[in-house]
Computed example of a mutant assay.
Amino acid sequence: MYRTVLLATDGSDDALGAAERAVDLAARYDAKLWACYVIETRTAYDNAIVEPETVERALLEEGEGALAAVAERAATEGIPLGGAIRRGVPYEELLEHARQEGADVIVVGRQGRSSFRAVVLGSTTDALVRLSPVPVLVVGEPSSPAGN
C-alpha cells in the first residue's frame, strides 16, 4: 500500500507521536521512510536584537535534533531513514519533498511548536490536508473545547 512515507517533523510533542506512526507504517509496509524539517523563512527577526546567523544556527540545530529523534525511533525498528532540512514555507517545502521522493503518504502532527505562528502564518497541517495529492495522516490529540 505504501512504498514511501514522508514524516513532517518540527520536534513538537505531536511530531514525536507522528514519528512513531510513520515508523510503524514504514515497518508494516516495508516502505522507505523520510523525515523532513523545514526552517520557516516567512518569519523576520529584528537584527538589533538577534543576529540572523544566530537564529539560523539555532533553527538548524533544532532541525538536526528533531531528525535525530526520528532516526533514533526508526533505528529501534531497523528502519533506514532519509532526512532533510529544507528552508522555505513549510507546507510548500513538504509537498515538494513528497513529490521528489514519490511519497505515498505524509504523516504530520496535528499542532506544531507554536500555535501563535499557526494563527499568523496559517497552519501547515491544514495546508497539507487541503493541498496534498497524497493522503495526509494527522497524529495528535484533539484540543479540548474552549472554556474546558
Score class of each variant (00 low, 15 high):
L16F: 09
Y91F: 10
L121P: 01
A19D: 00
A84N: 15
E64F: 01
L25E: 00
E93I: 11
C36G: 10
E72A: 13
K32Y: 12
Q100P: 08
R117A: 09
E92T: 03
G82P: 05
V119Y: 08
L59F: 02
W34A: 05
R28N: 08
A18T: 09
V120H: 07
A26G: 03
V119H: 14
E51D: 11
Q111G: 02
P80T: 09
R113C: 02
D10P: 04
G88C: 00
L60D: 02
L33Y: 00
E53Y: 00
W34N: 07
R99D: 09
V105L: 13
V55Q: 07
E96L: 12
E92C: 04
A71C: 04
L16A: 12
R113H: 02
V120L: 05
E61A: 01
Y45E: 08
A118M: 13
F116T: 13
C36H: 09
G17S: 07
S115P: 15
D24N: 12
R86F: 08
E62N: 11
Y29I: 02
R117F: 00
A84P: 15
R87Q: 14
A26V: 02
P52D: 08
V55D: 04
R57V: 01
R113F: 01
E40L: 05
Q100Y: 12
R73H: 14
R87N: 04
A18S: 05
A31S: 11
L94R: 02
V23R: 05
L60H: 08
G109K: 08
V108G: 01
R73T: 09
D10F: 03
D126S: 11
E64D: 09
E96M: 11
G11L: 10
H97M: 12
V38T: 05
